[in-house]
Amino acid sequence: MAISIEDVEHVARLARLALSEDEKETFRRQLSDVLEHARVISEVDTEGVEPTSHTLPLVNVFRDDVARPSLPTEEVTSNAPWAADGAFRVPRIV
């Protein structure tokens, strides 16, 4: 299955990636190859097989509803490039 330059642009926009024209063409080819591989896999007969969402043989891993102390405020924003009064500052959204 081949994908178009428009598909690449769409996916790039969703991931907030800026791509050059050359990169778009490279990814168009690579992504088409990936999808082609997926198409081959999809030919396997999976009739009666539940889709696998997890490979771990585990279910129902829960924690008790007990509150514990949060991070000290000065540590919360210590790695943030931009913060003010305990809040994270982010550039204009729209």
């Binding site: 924690r63 007990v66 509150a67 514990r68 949060s70 991070l71 405020t73 305990g86 809040a87």
Partner: peptide, 21 residues
């Protein structure tokens, strides 16, 4: 009493990011 996937308390209000981890 605590959040969905961590143990931070769920109190309403409070100074920004005082209930985070």
């Amino acid at each position: 009493a605590s959040k969905m996937f961590c143990g931070c308390p769920t109190a309403f209000g409070g100074a920004p990011n005082t209930s985070t981890c």
